[in-house]
Design a binder for these strands. Structure first.
Length: 920
RNA sequence: GGGAGGAUAGCUCAGGUGGUUAGAGCGCACGCCUGAUAAGCGUGAGGUCCCAGGUUCAAUUCCUGGUCUUCCCA
């Protein structure tokens, strides 16, 4: 690194200046691709895996499969980098920790994207040809699997990239089907009719995970329901007056499905007269309603408790149908009228109330959201469009009291962004509260127990997922789509009985393993399940199920498709690690299937990280213009900077990124790298095996720095154990910036450069630096995978592996005892002396600290070696005295030409340096 | 609307089971060095610990209510 002297200068040449080929600039942008290529050629991944295969203990991190429909974003990068760091530290701790990546290949997003593509190709009829359509979906998915694979590889992620698990792999699909079969055998799977979110554009049921809430403009109408039968209490209040209940709804189109009204028995209701007639509404809202609807002056006739209304019956406003008044505590007195219209075919609350009171489920809306012939007046009309006609009809009948429009939060389809409706359809479910034959408990009970038995990082994750599992409804696992695994069930055409488990399932699983699930859509039932006969009616004619499974069911079964079937894995896995959104997603689906199919959770611990936000803490969005793509960061800074940033941030919270933050990560990284570089450069002429000194021979400052370094290693071990990498990064950085650079290396430069080349002091320091450099490189290697490798290659050692990534995490370095009190005393002395020296420099009395001699008086002179060296001044004395004081004097201008210290010289050389110069 | 996180210097993070002037590093300013040089060293200035109440001799810490923000749900 030093430029050769222009002319021979024996003094200059005698100085042992640092030397290394480890470049001053990291050059990550060029270095990283080169190393990746070299690792590929030398098959480093294989070497790591071979080393792991000798390990006796296993620690498996099971990869949650990302969705292959685009390039990776920063969230993916954060997730995979964290996983990589953890797996690498486990590997370096001696665990077999193979990391097998996966992709979640089926599902609606790919279908939607493909449909758009087909539209461009003017080839929309392909959608009807399910096998052909599925083949295109597959092509699409596999294409992005490769894209994302390349993206991840570029980040330095070490994984079995050649053998990923894909949810579209027939072997994997067969295991999903087996999970379904086991759950069916355990009594969990049932078929039912239930209102679910339905997207009429995508013509599919949507899972809760597929719903987004957004602003929507809805009509808000108040409808008069004529009272047909009054309860006794109500009769006492209004007599035989012709009276109406005021009912509020924002979905007029569900009125044809109305079968009841709900009131809250806790509230007071009043009957009042006005120009338009006699009405009943909840007391708290009467004023608001009459004002809103401009009913004019009103007269209150009487009041009645909500409970006394129950049992009354209203007449449907435009259909020959009765509508009984039922009690429901979801009716509020904050909005509306105190009466809620109930349509069990179109609402969750309505459905449960209907179950309770055995109400019929009327659902006159087809897949496209159009009224069926059951609503002759508006048959064929799309429901949102029919709102207007229904309103007009009510108006004409004199039943419409008020119509306005409101903007409110309303569920939308996550893909097509259109508002969705609630609609009762035939679906498959996993029952949360059915007794399971294999454990005797319900799925909910066992899942809650398993949550307790799992270690959650951070700990509040447990509370979060527990409340979700406690409150969640049965899991609707069917989808009316084509890109996925079919619901593995066949139905008797004679009696309608469905076969799901047992032998049927074995046949289907076997068939799928051999032919894949696309063949399901092409084959006859008899080819898939030969010789089936109905246990109910002994019929032998069956039809295949045409729905597919929720993709969360597929990915949730990955423990079966991967952990259970891959001999390199363990089931359960030691850890699942994803963003905190997966408490509802993958963690939960994995847990439910794990319990439902095999009676245990597929993970021992679950770690979650936060989401990527910008420096202001706001989420990334195209509209905000604050999106930072990993690809761009890799190109501009290098993957190691991205990794250093990932590791240096507290991922339990949301993770902020910006140019400012990345620049800081780059600077921080640079400090660590440069410190390592300086250490390496002072080992060029050192051979550890023959020249190292014994711990007992170490000079005081070397023993001191090793004590500090061992303390750092101790802390870092704890941080690794707790997955607190940000603390490790901070500790390592601060250690490099302050303890090493400022307090140790700066001091030790003089002896490295000027002391006798093979003398004890220099070798003591080289021994120290050698061991610290070795340990430091290994310590950061799980994070800085490229830089550590580069440094390791430039590390002058005879005892190296072929790659840093085949080494172990560092352990404590053998050291001599030090006197802590002496060193803390010295720290005080140094602080005080430096303040004075700085003042002198400000006053222009001196320029460099080397110009002075320091005399320290103290009752307890520290025994820590040469004080002048430690203070980096030319001369120093420590005198024993009663109190502490410092005297600083400027030395006469007599300077050693070799070590630049102000010392008595002969021929321009001090007594230390003179013997080191070989005369020409 | 409900549940769960988070909020400490410009930035990334420590910390305190309540107790004098709340820490670190980076960045910044000023200076030094030119034998770590697209490097290195020193000194220094930066904080209403999100806001408002309450409990207390004492609150950044405990309690209550907000604000902003993230995730999940409706």
């Amino acid at each position: 690194m030093s430029t050769p002297p222009k002319e021979a200068n024996p003094i200059k040449e005698s100085v042992n200046l640092p030397q290394t080929d480890f470049p001053i600039r990291a050059g990550l942008i060029n270095l990283e691709p080169e190393l990746l290529e070299q690792w590929q050629e030398s098959n480093l991944a294989e070497a790591i895996s071979t080393k792991q295969s000798q390990a006796t203990k296993r620690w498996i991190l099971h990869d949650g499969p990302p969705y292959p429909n685009g390039n990776i974003h920063m969230g993916h990068a954060l997730n995979k980098i964290l996983k990589d760091i953890i797996v690498r530290t486990k590997t370096m701790q001696g665990y077999a920790s193979p990391y097998r990546p996966g992709w979640d290949c089926h599902g609606l997003p790919i279908e939607i994207q493909l449909l758009k593509q087909l539209q461009k190709e003017k080839n929309t009829e392909l959608k009807a040809d399910i096998p052909a359509f599925r083949n295109r979906c597959k092509e699409f998915a596999l294409n992005y699997v490769e894209t994302q694979k390349d993206d991840f590889k570029r980040l330095g992620i070490n994984a079995t990239w050649n053998t990923p698990y894909l949810t579209l792999d027939p072997h994997y699909e067969a295991e999903v089907i087996r999970c379904f079969g086991k759950m069916a055998d355990n009594g969990l799977i049932y078929k039912g009719r239930k209102p679910i979110h339905w997207c009429m554009h995508c013509e599919t049921a949507l899972a809760e995970a597929e719903i987004e809430y957004d602003e929507h403009r809805s009509p808000s109408i108040t409808v008069a329901f004529p009272i047909k039968t009054k309860s006794d209490a109500l009769t006492r209040v209004i007599g035989d007056q012709n009276t109406h209940f005021l009912v509020w709804t924002t979905t007029p189109w569900t009125l044809p499905a109305n079968v009841a009204l709900a009131a809250n028995s806790e509230y007071d209701y009043v009957a009042f007269n006005c120009e338009k007639g006699t009405f009943i509404a909840v007391k708290e809202l009467v004023e608001k309603i009459t004002e809103d609807a401009e009913l004019g002056p009103i007269t209150i006739i009487g009041s009645v408790k909500g409970a006394q209304l129950i049992g009354s019956v209203a007449h449907h406003p435009f259909i020959e149908r009765e509508s009984p008044v039922l009690n429901a505590d979801f009716v509020t007195n904050e909005d509306g009228t105190g009466f809620v219209h109930i349509a069990p075919g179109h609402g969750q609350d309505d459905y449960f109330l209907g179950l309770e009171h055995q109400l019929p489920i009327i659902m006159p809306v087809d897949d496209k959201g159009h009224f069926t012939k059951d609503v002759p007046a508006w048959e064929g009309q799309q429901v949102f469009e029919a709102n207007k006609a229904i309103g007009m009809h009510l108006e004409e009948a004199g039943k419409l009291i008020k119509l306005k429009f409101i903007k409110h939060s309303y569920p939308h389809c996550w893909r097509c962004k259109n508002p969705v409706i609630f609609r009762a359809t035939e679906q498959w479910f996993v029952g949360m509260d059915r007794k399971m034959t294999h454990t005797g408990n319900t799925l909910r009970e066992d899942a809650l127990q398993a949550i307790k038995d799992t270690k959650w990082y951070p700990d509040w994750g447990e509370k979060r997922i527990r409340s979700m599992v406690e409150g969640r409804p049965d899991w609707c696992i069917s989808r009316q789509r084509s890109w996925g695994i079919p619901i593995p069930a066949i139905t008797c055409t004679g009696c309608g009985e469905s076969l799901t488990g047992g032998k049927t399932n074995e046949h289907i699983a076997q068939f799928v393993r051999k032919h894949g699930t696309t063949a399901w859509f092409e084959s006859d039932v008899t080819d898939i399940v030969p010789g089936a006969s109905c246990p109910s009616c002994s019929g032998t004619a069956f039809k295949k199920e045409s729905d597919i499974l929720d993709v969360w069911f597929e990915s949730g079964a990955s423990f079966m498709g991967v952990l259970e079937t891959d001999p390199a894995m363990t089931n359960p896995a030691a850890m699942y690690l994803e963003g905190s959104d997966q408490h509802r997603g993958w963690f939960q689906s994995s847990l439910l299937i794990g319990i439902g199919a095999m009676g245990k959770a597929p993970f021992e611990s679950v770690l979650t990280h936060g989401f990527i936000v910008d420096e202001k803490g706001q989420k990334m969005s195209k509209s905000q213009g604050n999106v930072i793509a990993p690809e761009k960061v890799v190109k501009q800074y290098g993957a190691d900077i991205l990794r250093w940033w990932c590791a240096g941030t507290d991922f339990k919270n949301d993770v902020a990124i910006s140019d400012n933050i990345l620049n800081q990560a780059r600077d921080s990284f640079g400090k660590v790298r440069n410190t390592i570089r300086f250490m390496l450069s002072n080992l060029a002429d050192f051979e550890f095996e023959t020249e190292a000194v014994l711990p007992s021979e170490l000079t005081p400052i070397d023993a001191w720095i090793l004590t500090q370094f061992n303390a750092l290693l101790g802390k870092c071990n704890t941080h690794i154990a707790n997955f607190d990498f940000h603390q490790l990064v901070h500790n390592v950085h601060d250690f490099c910036a302050v303890t090493l650079s400022g307090q140790y290396l700066d001091v030790v430069k003089d002896r490295l450069y000027c002391d006798s080349k093979k003398g004890l002091s220099r070798r003591s320091t080289q021994t120290t630096i050698y061991q610290m450099a070795d340990a430091l490189i290994r310590l950061v290697s799980p994070i800085l995978v490229f830089t550590a490798e580069d440094a390791y290659r430039h590390f002058n050692s005879n005892n190296k592996e072929t790659s840093i990534h085949l080494t172990a995490l560092p352990t404590q370095i053998p050291n001599a005892q030090i006197n802590q009190t002496d060193w803390s005393h010295f720290a005080e002395i140094k602080g005080a002396v430096y303040q004075e020296l700085e003042a002198m420099r400000k006053n222009k009395e001196i320029k460099s600290f080397l110009e002075v001699k320091v005399t320290i008086t103290t009752p307890t002179p520290p025994n820590i070696g040469n004080i002048a060296e430690l203070l980096i001044v030319s001369q120093a004395n420590v005198i024993k005295g009663n109190s502490v004081s410092y005297n600083i004097e400027k030395l006469p201008d007599e300077k050693c030409e070799r070590c630049w210290r102000f010392l008595p010289t002969t021929q321009n050389l001090c007594t230390r340096c003179a013997p080191e110069v070989t005369p020409v």
